[in-house]
Amino acid sequence: MLSMRSAPAGVGLDSNAKRQNSMKVLVTVKRVLDYNVKVRVKADRSDVDLANVKMALNPFCEIAVEEAVRLKEAGVATEVIVVSIGPKAVQEQIRTALALGADRGIHIETENSPESLSVAKLLAKIVADEQPGLVILGKQAIDSDNNQTGPMLAALTGLSQGTFASEVKIEGDEALVTREVDGGLQTLGLKLPAIVTTDLRLNEPRYASLPNIMKAKKKPMEVKTPADLGVELRAHTELLGVEPPAERKGGIKVSSVAELVEKLKNEAKVI
């Protein structure tokens, strides 16, 4: 079903086994509305209602954590550092990531959840401090659905990027990232250090075990502020309002298959 088209031989890369043996992996996690909870727009339509609803680790971030932990288990990574940005409550998600196998946490405390570019700027400082060999982020958060932070971080750090990853392999000085693109899969070789964002099929995250949840409580967590990192948060957008999606209305009944095909061809123009 699939045909493989090979690229010409890659650009010259010297393998650097040393990096591989001392590679830190940085993973980012976001606290979002649990995917099982129905979203409800506030009565005044200012935003969605998040009062007393269940919050959880963004599913794509969970996949990022899993991938990082697997790299560590495979002996490729030496340490997995997890970062989250937001109010104190996000420490719960950092603890979840620690229970899944990350080694230590960094909480950048902000009043709200900052915009993607601000998040990328904060993360860029952490990257500068920690010098990870690989940064793994979720491709998007399921609340804002922006799909921005990974490439923005790559731009700010001047690093390579592999978005929508369904497979990540570290070979020498390079990360081979298979990407889920429209119409198929694409594999890129990324010079390390690299920024990778996860897609759904990258892995199936494990469950945190009870002993690991207890151990996670004792793992180190550093708290920093944007001021500590020398980043000034700036708004690039203003949310004017939120509304529920328009309800679909029923259309017409057709009397025959022939009429259906005719309508789809000539009226809806979808076949």
Binding site: E204, P205, R206, Y207, S209, L210, P211
Partner: peptide
């Protein structure tokens, strides 16, 4: 058991 299989714990 699936890939994500995690046995239960005795408490």
């Amino acid at each position: 058991p699936k890939d994500s299989y995690t046995p239960g714990m005795e408490l």
